[in-house]
Amino acid sequence: MEWGGIVGYGLFLLIYGGIYAISALGLNVQWGYTGLFNIGVGGFFLVGAYTSAIMTKGPDFSHLGGFGQPFVVGVLAGGVLAAVLALLIGIPTLRLRGDYLAIATIGIAETLRLIVTNEQWLTAGVWGIGGIPKPLFSTFGSAYNAFYAVLVLAVMGLVYFAIERGIRSPWGRVLKAIREDETVAQAVGKDIFRFKLQALVLGAFFMGVAGALFAHFVGYISPEAFEPMNATFLVWVMLIVGGSGNSKGAILGAFIVWVIWSGTEFVAAALPPTLGPRAHALRIILIGLLLMIMLLVRPQGVLGEERQVSKLLRPGDGSRQASAGG
């Protein structure tokens, strides 16, 4: 592969890895910190993508549109609509056992896929929405992917710092307390339902933003792009590989797994063409086995959760000194 190819691949890695990292960061707020089971990541991602596409496009008779809003408005609207959806799903399920949320999120993701496939007036159905505007495309021209990589990484950084601030605040400590032991959190007077709802909604907002960024990069979306494998399962594998309960882990996992995922595509391409249609199935089997091995061998992920110790306990204190100095 010549240099151009390597640079091109690197940019794709940064863009897709970054988009998936934003989703994984959102899932980390829900699952990693609060212990909420969202298996409908793809549903929130889909809402973000379709919302932003419809909001930003000019008139198009094949689906709802003609709002012509700027990119930033589209992306934010995508995030907000995903968050509203999370609110609606969270209210009936978050007071119940964790499994119910899991089932409900799968249900909403599948229902949304049915809606975008069947409601042609809204989403053009299986034909999908094309010609989604690429922000500042004419300004950057041939260097466009480099610009978009910077944009995605900037958003990822913003999301990362926002989450880190939140998690290190009293609010974040309540989330972790809920994950560790709901009853205790309740006993000290925390309204656990509200905190869970906030975590679910915040995570969904980031997933919606990620979906919008995806739509504006590829320029064309159809229901096929939101199969549960691509949009949900991969994000889960990323978070578990990187280390749930750790924002750096979510980002690291997203890039590692995307490299593996795209690497298996090269392997699949090298297979004899008779195996062609089977290669896709094989790729997914490999990712599934990766998750299994990870859960069995290193369930805390590559990085694991960071220990957070009170600021008042400095390394110089008491018996810790010996080990810290040595």
Partner: peptide
């Protein structure tokens, strides 16, 4: 176990 079973389902 729940997430493992999602993995088993896809595999």
């Amino acid at each position: 176990l729940l997430i493992a079973s999602v993995g088993v389902a896809l595999v």
